[in-house]
């Protein structure tokens, strides 16, 4: 009796294990799985704000109603965000009610508070969370993949976790389950990378970098901030410019807001010295990540030519580095 039940148990166990192992096969019989690389193209087509290269005539026209780039200057971060977004056409231009939104600030380390300007201004992030929710977003998640410390710790130290949670958003510690190794079809050099799948499939991805000094990139702005969506980012450093632009061909935020409120002028991207921080009270908004980066070089007294990856990105049709003739609206809040 006892032997029999053990045998039965083992048989059931084997059966269970086989079923479990066979489930991917069973699953594939049902719904046809979408090839990984197709995921972003499908969602981006729906948002009509992809890139200047793929934008249709109609899309260009809608863009013409609004300034190409908005700059707000002031001292109240939330008002700067609200005024800037309003000038850009409001959050409704970028999302429909019920949308799933991901905000990607720069929370690269968990060493110091936001005052040291290594991480994005928490009030800017919180204001975006509020605006998305006001526009009917189903869910607003805020996330980054820090290199210096755990997500939990960095979210807390940066001050972003507290304000985002209070505003009704969710802080998501990026799960290794969601990094999917995939082909980058338009890549020149970075042909494969492990990318966080949610930033590819979400309805709206808002890129909110902080403008700061960086050894390799010289400045880390919108494009450089995309590196927090992939694994093994250290491997990107050799042939940095090509790799970064390759990544930008697949991770396509529909909106980039560069935080230039407190800018880290030296010893970035980690910081730690208030003497290196310059208060500039500026926010830069654009649907075009390259244009935003190009404009942001002015915060450091430079031109886009200072950043080879911005020029390369423009050459490869990801946006405009040359801002001449574009409709740029500047808003002074305190004036």
């Amino acid at each position: 009796m006892k032997d029999q039940s053990r045998r039965e148990f083992l048989r059931n166990l084997m059966l269970g294990a086989t079923t479990l192992a066979a489930q991917p096969i069973l699953a594939s019989c049902g719904v046809k799985p979408v090839p990984e690389t197709q995921v972003p193209t499908v969602t981006l087509a729906a948002t009509e704000l992809a890139s200047t290269e793929t934008a249709t005539e109609a899309a260009t026209e809608t863009q013409n109603q609004y300034p190409y780039l908005v700059v707000t200057r002031g001292s109240d971060a939330e008002q700067m965000v609200r005024q800037g977004m309003q000038a850009l056409g409001g959050m409704e231009r970028f999302m429909k009610s019920g949308a799933d939104v991901i905000i990607k600030p720069n929370i690269c380390v968990g060493y110091y508070s936001f005052e040291y300007a290594a991480t994005t201004n928490p009030w800017v992030v919180a204001a975006l969370v509020k605006m998305c929710l006001e526009s009917g977003a189903k869910r607003v998640r805020v996330m980054d993949y820090p290199f210096g410390g755990t997500g939990e710790q960095c979210y807390k130290i940066s001050g972003i976790a507290d304000l985002v949670t209070a505003a009704g958003g969710e802080m998501e510690v990026m799960s290794s389950l969601k990094f999917v190794e995939m082909d980058i079809p338009d890549a020149v050099r970075l042909k494969r990378a492990s990318i966080y799948q949610d930033v590819l499939t979400t309805d709206l991805l808002i890129n909110v970098p902080i403008a700061k000094n960086h050894g390799m990139a010289k400045l880390t702005l919108g494009l450089k901030n995309l590196m927090g969506t992939m694994l093994n980012r250290e491997s990107i450093h050799p042939s940095f410019e090509k790799n970064l632009v390759d990544l930008a061909t697949i991770v396509r935020p529909q909106l980039t807001i560069i935080d230039g409120i407190r800018t880290l002028m030296a010893n970035g991207p980690t910081g730690g010295n208030l003497d290196d921080v310059k208060i500039q009270n500026t926010l830069i908004f654009s649907h075009d990540i390259v244009a935003a980066d190009s404009y942001a070089t002015r915060l450091f007294g430079k031109t886009p030519e200072y950043l080879p990856y911005v020029i390369k990105a423009a050459e490869r049709g990801l946006g405009k580095a040359d801002l001449t003739g574009l409709n740029i609206k500047e808003i002074f809040l305190d004036a």
Binding site: H214, G215, H237, P269, T270, G271, G272, N273
Partner: peptide, 26 residues
């Protein structure tokens, strides 16, 4: 080191260094 052996600009170490004044300089 890639800088000496392959003459590649890498400097990940400098980027990562958390010391406020950077203990790795260029």
């Amino acid at each position: 080191c890639l800088a000496w052996s392959d003459h590649i600009n890498c400097i990940v170490c400098e980027e990562m260094c958390p010391i406020p004044q950077k203990a790795i300089t260029l």
